[in-house]
């Protein structure tokens, strides 16, 4: 690995990263939400000596659990707060608007530009669907059978992963048209035995990947035919052999982050073991595994044009921890990908 292709962001968050996301266009702007109650906006600068600047940071009342870019022309972003609020942030002026309030912390936010929808998922077991074309209206509240932990959208679908291995898939056009809470388009049980950690949808609208706390990733397809369902698979990853003196076996890390490459349809996984691996979902092969990062990988994001991969690292929360802090150990790396680095063999 040539070191020059990877660099670290200056002025990283002062506590654990909860989420990071690139702008969907090719402007190479990066939003990072953190447990330090701030959202950070960075701008990558191209040219000699890859670098990035902190453009702005937006203070919140409580830790921010998720962030996403909104409408590009308005330069907006949305955040999910521990303070139970879903907020819109004007990235230019820093002005914050509360869109809705949940009765428990908000875990995820997802924006769909095609349907002009913002969906938030909260530990109060509801989804709030905000119709952004009608800003004054109350959000549509959809009750969920479990606490949501991960949320992801493809061009037409929305995948919600909950406790008890529940997975609900909603059809975005139906959500956009609905006036009362619609039934899920599909309800599934996770292919993984353990608590779902992350979900990411394929950019080509064909399916999605999920990961669990038990070092495993599953790839599934939306199409509900026998052939399509027979194609789904799961595999182990982000594990390390324990030293013999500790009894051997494997140390199994949670897979905290998944992200699909917007162009090639391959995907990256990031785990508590501090590694990032690139996978070819079609060919069922690992393409690359990068050198270990100093801490657990908390979040991953590809830039809109697929040229960069951002990696948020901070200490992982482990069983039995009574005290946790990501202070001083939280960093954000950006890897500039080679032209064919994330290109799968099967997708030539």
């Amino acid at each position: 690995m040539a070191p020059s292709t990877q660099f670290e962001l200056p002025q990283p968050p002062t506590d654990a990263v909860s989420s990071l996301v690139f702008s969907p266009d090719s402007s190479h702007r990066l939003l990072v939400s953190s447990w330090d109650k701030h959202v950070y906006l960075y701008q990558l600068t191209e040219g000699e000596g890859d670098n990035a600047n902190l453009l702005n940071k937006y203070e919140h009342r409580a830790p921010v659990l998720d962030v996403c870019f909104g409408d590009a022309s308005n330069n907006e972003a949305y955040t999910a707060g521990m303070d139970r609020q879903v907020k819109k942030i004007d990235l230019t002026s820093g002005e914050q608007t509360v869109l809705s309030k949940h009765s428990e912390p908000v875990r995820c936010v997802v924006y769909s530009s095609a349907h002009n929808l913002l969906v938030s998922a909260s530990w109060d077991n509801t989804l709030h669907v905000h119709k952004l074309s009608d800003p004054g209206s109350d959000p549509l509240v959809i009750p969920l059978p479990g606490k949501p932990h991960a949320l992801s959208s493809s061009p037409t679908k929305l995948v919600v992963a909950m406790t008890a291995r529940l997975v609900h898939i909603y059809d975005l056009p139906t959500l956009a048209a609905a006036t009362s809470p619609p039934a899920p388009w599909q309800t599934r049980e996770s292919s993984l035995k353990f608590l779902t950690r992350a979900v990411a949808c394929m950019p080509n609208d064909a399916g999605y990947a999920t990961s669990s706390i038990e070092g495993r990733v599953a790839v599934e397809w939306f199409e509900d035919t026998l052939e399509s369902q027979a194609r789904k698979y799961a595999f182990k990853c982000h594990r390390q052999a324990a030293p013999e003196e500790e009894g051997g076996g494997d140390i199994v890390y949670p897979v905290n982050a998944l992200a699909f490459h917007p162009v090639y349809g391959t995907f990256a996984s990031g785990g508590g073991d501090g590694t990032v691996a690139l996978w070819d979902a079609e060919a069922k092969r690992r393409m690359r595994q990068y050198q270990k990062f100093p801490e657990a990988v908390a979040s991953l994001g590809f830039s809109g044009d697929g040229k960069y991969l951002a990696i948020g690292v901070c200490p992982g929360f482990e069983t039995g921890m009574e005290d946790y802090t990501g202070q001083g150990r939280t960093r954000v790396f950006v890897r500039e990908l080679g032209e064919t680095e994330a290109k799968g063999k099967g997708t030539k």
Binding site: W123, K147, T163, I213, I251, V252, E318
Partner: peptide
């Protein structure tokens, strides 16, 4: 015994 999960609560997420 051979397998040790770094995080093993199957009900409550680390964030919670």
């Amino acid at each position: 015994k051979g397998m040790r999960m770094v995080y093993d609560d199957t009900e409550v997420s680390p964030e919670e």
